[in-house]
């Protein structure tokens, strides 16, 4: 049996990344470091796309990118495979386990039996680690769960081949470590992660993503009450809150995790500016959470006036300004070593 250390994480992909690297002897990449090096922080309001009949909003970068970017920046080769045939996908997985290699798998949540029913939507970008097989039951380390769990071969095959948007197509991945990254590579990776995140949040074209996406969403929220009525507007806000706070973000739409990343980066690159910007992201996370409380007042039906929606939007304008200042400051830091 593979001796795999299950470390609970806030988010699935960063957790899988950090845990797989740890298993392969790299103990320097915590979850926040994986998140920051992978430039995980993001915001996007995807126009014209509805998820569960409400707007598609995300607080993180595209699924799969964090693992790939983090390993690339640390100069760790990555094996990543998708499959057409379901049986081939299971065979390949078994071979990895036979070779004592734990692997990351992308899965859909809807048929994931160990999740409570309330959380099982058709979301296909969940990640977990398969680290063993006993009596035709696969041993699963799902980083958002407190403990390891199990799935039958059939159950695992089903979630690996969930269908619909972002279908996993049996995707599995693992690092193939030849050389451990040294401190210099790690520092460079941190700087690269920060720069890419500055670009994504400040300079991504179009009004829907990055800091301008937050402002765009605020503008939308102001109009929701008039366009949709308070009830439907409430379900839209509930969806925003779920994307922001539901299992997998570490709270405040990943902003606290990013603040933790900057704080840990300071250990590697002692620039006081990193600490200051870390504090700004803590504040940003707190504003996001205040906005969630305001939103809940609306979707509980306790407050229903236009002024309540305006106040909700004001939180978002405020957080957009703060994050803009924070990323500008990050961009201006001389991160030399």
């Amino acid at each position: 049996m593979i001796d795999f250390k299950h470390i609970q994480s806030a988010h699935c992909e960063t957790g899988v990344t950090s845990n797989l690297l740890f298993h392969n002897g790299i103990d320097t990449i915590s979850e926040p470091l994986a998140f920051g090096i992978g430039s995980g922080l993001f915001f996007i309001y995807i126009p014209f796309l509805k998820v569960n009949h409400a707007p598609a909003i995300s607080f993180r970068t595209m699924p799969g990118m964090i693992f790939k970017r983090t390993c690339n920046a640390l100069k760790i080769p990555v094996i990543q495979k998708k499959f057409r045939s379901e049986s081939e996908a299971m065979e390949y997985l078994d071979q990895c386990i036979d070779k004592s290699k734990p692997v990351g798998c992308q899965v859909g949540v809807y048929y994931l039996t160990y999740f409570p029913k309330e959380y099982r939507f058709h979301f296909n970008a969940h990640n977990l680690v398969v680290f063993g097989k006993e009596n035709n039951r696969y041993l699963i380390s799902d980083p958002v769960m407190e403990n390891t769990t199990e799935l039958t071969g059939q159950e695992l095959q089903r979630v690996r081949f969930a269908k619909g948007p972002l279908a996993p197509k049996g995707q599995l991945y693992y690092p193939e470590i030849k050389e451990k990254p040294d401190e210099l590579i790690l520092r460079k990776a941190i700087v690269k992660g920060i720069k890419r995140n500055v670009r994504d949040m400040l300079y991504i074209p179009g009004p829907f993503a990055g800091v301008s996406g937050i402002r765009f969403t605020a503008g939308k929220i102001k109009k929701w009450r008039g366009q949709l009525g308070t009830k439907k507007a409430g379900t839209y806000l509930a969806q925003l809150v779920r994307m922001q706070e539901e299992i997998g973000t570490g709270g405040g739409g990943f902003r606290f995790m990013y603040a933790a990343f900057l704080e840990q980066s300071y250990q590697h690159i002692p620039n006081e500016g990193l600490k200051e910007v870390s504090e700004m992201f803590t504040e940003a996370g707190d504003i996001w959470r205040s906005s969630a409380v305001q939103a809940s007042g609306i979707f509980k039906g306790r407050i229903t006036e236009q002024s309540d929606f305006d106040l909700m939007a004001d939180y978002l304008y405020k957080v957009a300004d703060l994050e803009k200042t924070a990323f500008k400051k990050l961009a201006g830091l001389k991160l030399t070593f």
Partner: peptide, 26 residues
């Protein structure tokens, strides 16, 4: 798992049972 500041203002993690705001959202 949540990320939050400890007494010394440093980040650490702790477990949350849940948050009424998001239970209601669900």
């Amino acid at each position: 798992l949540c990320y939050a500041l400890d007494e010394n203002g440093n980040y650490s993690t702790d477990l949350s049972k849940g948050w009424e705001v998001k239970s209601k959202a669900l």
